[in-house]
Amino acid sequence: MKYVSAFDLKRNYESMKDEIKEALDRVLESQRFILGEEVEKFEKEVSSYLEVAHAVGCGSGTDALFLSLMSLDIKEGDEVITTPYTFFATASSIAKLGAKPVFVDIDPLTYNIDTDKVVEYITPRTKAVIVVHLFGLMTPVEKLEPLLKDKGIHLIEDCAQSFGAWRKIDGKIRRCGTIGTFGCFSFYPTKNLGGYGDGGLVTTNLSSLAERIKRLRAHGCSGEYIHEELGMNSRLDAIQAAVLRCRLRHVDDWNRKRRIIAERYRLLFNVYKISEFVKAPSEDEGSYHVYHQYVVRCERRDDLSKYLDENGIGTRVYYPLPLHLQPVFKYLDYRRGDFPEAEKLSQDSLALPMYPELTPDEQEYVVKTIAKFYR
């Protein structure tokens, strides 16, 4: 029996071991471990890659969201619209500031927030909308951005799973994290651009907000031991920045390989005649999906996942319980049935193995095993 893991970091490390060690040695020789030159260089390099004016490193993707909301003075009584089908941090960052997360159902094809429904949930208390570019596919933010701008509502892009993704807007390629007031990135090790620990990034085209994020990430400090406001301790480590500088040079190639793997899955689903049981993820026109996860919709999800595990194939369920049904958000008074598309997806979605080093033979074994299950 073969073994195919859901994700394999070791193969990636083997491919660039010497490059990483050289970067780590550079930091160790400098003995500068918090912020400093490595972080500054990474911020410049990543802002150039994304084509955004400012990039500010921080401690995690969760902190990136929290810092963004803090800098907009989101507070108790405010409302922030977002999706119920995403990682917990998107909504918890809102709630931790005392604001109210307001959920909007998803598009069943893209899994992202249904942009056509957002306007129905806007109230005088709405201060921001957080869209999540889930699993590597950008939300069509061009539908939302002009509307929100007219209403004085901030657009925040949660880009934790979508580094390198883009959409063609008005004939131009626009990368995720460059359209809204803020883009929020995670560099958790399994991400398309992942570090070797926690790390995050906030992007913006507004200089005043970039400066405020820099203050807030360091206890609201504007000078040595001078604190203008209450901030937090969320500084990017130099070691993580050095690793990310190395990995940034390869991320486009890795994303290209992810797209090849995604297309191979689609072809294999047809070859093994399982398309009626397993639905491949969608990629809407004008989008460049980077497949952080390869999430299918399938019949008898839990039974299939168990069968694949018994045959040495790792899978994951993202996410088994939508945010509006989480116990911690009971006070929001949402009920089962409020967001039917998100609830359906939580019951039939399954992430198959996906990483740049996944081989064609391993992919065929995965699909062949799925076919055996349904036969």
Rank of each mutant, 00 (worst) to 15 (best):
I122Y: 00
T139L: 00
K117T: 02
R215E: 14
R297K: 15
E45L: 12
L148H: 07
I20Q: 10
Y334M: 01
L28N: 15
T181M: 11
D170Y: 14
E341Q: 01
R247S: 06
A6C: 07
S71E: 10
D73A: 11
Y307T: 08
N270E: 12
C184Q: 07
S234H: 13
S48V: 03
G171R: 10
G312P: 10
R336N: 05
R235C: 10
R259G: 03
D114M: 01
Y225E: 10
L209E: 08
L24V: 12
K44Y: 08
T90L: 07
E341L: 02
A99M: 01
I239R: 14
K41E: 15
P353N: 10
P356Q: 12
E29Y: 09
T83V: 00
L308V: 08
I34G: 13
V4Y: 10
E299Q: 08
I94N: 02
R300I: 06
R32D: 15
H324E: 06
R175P: 06
A210D: 12
E299F: 09
E357G: 13
S186T: 01
G98W: 06
G312R: 14
L65M: 09
G337N: 00
K41S: 10
S234I: 09
S234R: 12
G171C: 11
E276T: 12
S208N: 07
V131A: 01
P340H: 13
A165P: 01
Y291G: 09
I153V: 07
S93F: 01
C176H: 05
R217A: 11
C246S: 08
E263V: 03
K21C: 05
P320W: 13
K10C: 08
Y374W: 04
